[in-house]
Design a protein around this nucleic acid. Structure first.
Lengths: 119, 119
DNA sequence: CAGAATCCATTCGGATACTG
DNA sequence: CAGTATCCGAATGGATTCTG
């Protein structure tokens, strides 16, 4: 399902000539389709630099392996920055990169609205 | 993974007392996490009432079974309206419900931005 | 045309156990 | 504390076939 960036970004078809083409599936969208992904960005955007444990508590229900995966994916893509402190016990903080903040700005209205829909 | 609405909407934990809780995973978010879901809403929002075949062409790469599933899910949840015409050959058009338009408004900034990120 | 049904490979994510 | 590694069932989605 996950295409490499070259392949997915060069997919061309007639309907993509217009400026209103939402067809692309690759890139960020691929990661955003995974569980807890959108919430993760918004949580970090809301509480600022956040520690692993805090995020784990906030995203009620995530398994450590899933959270770990999501975190790595976003770091890899440049949406999260990982700060590691040389302390004992170890402390790590995740925060949004500028790109991550842009993403968060577009995610917040969605999630906030989605939450209200649930009632 | 898909919880029933009761279960997912009654999940309560301490960090959800604040107005900035994005934890809920159920409801629309569940469907939005599926492939082509966000694009589907935006495509219909952009080209207006759209036929099955047109959507299939626009969402380059979807299988008919997947598109069919996504369409049904959104109709079921009240985000899409399905108009069937008594013609031969049969014609069906999908369009956003008011709820669907609200969703679309929050999705468009995201997808538009995501598309630009790919270059 | 618009889709439902079936089959199946792949992916995903939870549980559990284990480290630096 | 902050993960990683492994195992494994469940969910997802593509391909294909068929139909009103």
């Amino acid at each position: 399902m996950v295409k490499n960036s070259e392949e997915s970004s060069t997919t061309v078809h007639s309907s993509c000539d217009t400026p209103t083409c939402y067809c692309p599936i690759g890139g960020v969208m691929d990661v955003l389709n995974r569980r807890y992904a959108m919430q993760l960005i918004c949580v970090i955007g809301t509480i600022g630099p956040a520690r692993y444990g805090t995020i784990e508590d906030t995203l009620d229900g995530v398994s450590s392996s899933t959270l770990s995966a999501r975190l790595n994916e976003f770091v890899e893509l440049g949406y999260l920055f990982r700060k590691q402190y040389a302390e004992v016990p170890p402390r790590v903080e995740y925060e949004l990169t500028p790109k991550g903040e842009q993403l968060c700005q577009r995610l917040e209205p969605l999630l906030e609205w989605a939450r209200d829909q649930e009632d």
